[in-house]
Design a protein around this nucleic acid. Structure first.
Lengths: 169, 169
DNA sequence: TTGCTCCTCACGTCACGTGAGGTGGC
DNA sequence: TTGCTCCTCACGTCACGTGAGGTGGC
């Protein structure tokens, strides 16, 4: 069996996929919309976006001329804020806290998946080891046939003791 | 080794402890404070407690005469609300959402602990099994000493074949 | 010049806590 | 009667979104 690398598929996919994911991630994080467009996409007043930034709820990139540049992720975050303040009627302090708690939940879910993978791995490895041990003992044993009328010599021709392998009945 | 029972200590403690926990839990859930006392303990206006109840944030027991009776747990919940609205400045919609998310986090943490216990158990059981298999083979094998000048008889006095046990070098 | 950006300041709305006012049963 | 409960209604405060007003660079 060829030795497999240690890393997991979902942690670090092979070169091509990883590069692709990086590219996608970069795209989603790239500042592309200026404030009026981002506000339009999020269904908000531009000034509202500035207020959210002042409160630390969102941090758009800036152009060299200091113009705010919102990414796709930023817009989705704005829409999330919109849901929480609009539909649920939460204030900004609540939105901040909800984001913190959701981060915690996401962290726990990741650890849970990691634990499940680890448990599967342990199960698999130990059962393989068990199988290996069983096989290894079985391979070393052969059926012993009792001698008929012949007698066993004390030494082999080269003087070494006989290796007699026997299975207990 | 004596066989241990299946259930876990923190899920279902033995009779005495369980009864004690039930008693404690009953005490903490028993409606004991009327509204003015509960409000005093929570540092709130009594009317505020009625508002929270109307919003479904808290549900005190009621006496036969319809008087609200707050438990120790209720008071602690009120203090939690106080923290979130006072220190963090959240509104009631945010408090409700925070409570939901915290319940989810608690659920995940419980599942995590269960998973860890399960992983430990699997680890333990399979390693015990592995050890058992190794011992079981080892018990069947002994070192074979080569005969000196004597010769092995083909049969034992009772006519049965010899059981020759040997360890491979 | 037009239309965007940047910023600050002020007003309107709404959620929520406080308090008053009136009731009823130990 | 006193002091609690129950309830409803109204007001004050504060958070927050909207909008105006003034600036500057393509």
């Amino acid at each position: 069996m060829p030795r497999r690398p240690r890393r997991r598929e979902d942690e670090a996919p092979k070169g091509g996929e990883r590069a692709e994911q990086d590219r996608e991630s970069e795209d989603r994080e790239r500042g592309v919309y200026m404030i009026s467009v981002a506000a339009e996409l999020a269904g908000m007043h531009p000034q509202t976006l500035r207020i959210y930034e002042a409160r630390g709820l969102i941090t758009p990139k800036r152009s060299p001329k200091n113009t705010r540049l919102y990414s796709q992720e930023d817009v989705e975050r704005l829409q999330r804020i919109q849901e929480l303040t609009g539909e649920l009627g939460m204030n900004l302090a609540g939105v901040e806290r909800a984001f913190e708690l959701e981060r915690e939940i996401e962290r726990l879910r990741r650890r849970m998946r990691a634990l499940e993978r680890q448990a599967d791995k342990i199960r698999g490895e130990l059962q393989a080891e068990l199988e290996r041990v069983r096989r290894s003992f079985r391979r070393e044993l052969v059926v012993w046939e009792p001698p008929e009328k012949t007698l066993l010599p004390a030494r082999r021709p080269d003087g070494a003791p006989f290796q007699i392998r026997v299975r207990r009945r």
